[in-house]
């Protein structure tokens, strides 16, 4: 499952980033790291997502969201 498949309100744990090297590095620097949790806040017009990562909110475009592997979290905190 990728982040792009997630509906608003779903909480997931991040897995590997299948993105080009520079993008992977940039996202890692922002805290998009394996094991960290995100909550999907909303979905935009072109399939992009607004997510909560820790206390920060990020808009992620659809192609990037497709490159972020995730697993669902049942009961945890963000």
């Amino acid at each position: 499952m990728t982040l792009h498949d997630c509906a608003p309100g779903v909480r997931v744990r991040l897995g590997r980033l299948r993105l080009p090297g520079p993008d992977r590095l940039r996202l890692s620097g922002l805290g998009f790291l394996p094991g960290h949790e995100v909550l999907v806040i909303g979905r935009g017009a072109a399939g992009g997502l607004v997510v909560a990562l820790g206390d920060a909110r990020y808009a992620v475009d659809a192609d990037t969201a497709r490159g972020i592997r995730v697993t669902a979290v049942v009961d945890s905190h963000v």
Binding site: L39, I41, G42, G44, A46, V50, A52
Partner: peptide, 20 residues
């Protein structure tokens, strides 16, 4: 516990496909 903020609720509408 974590709860969506007012900004989060606004973003569900203001960046959505329908209203954005």
């Amino acid at each position: 516990a974590f709860r969506p903020t007012l900004s989060d609720r606004a973003d569900r509408v203001l960046t959505s496909g329908r209203f954005g």
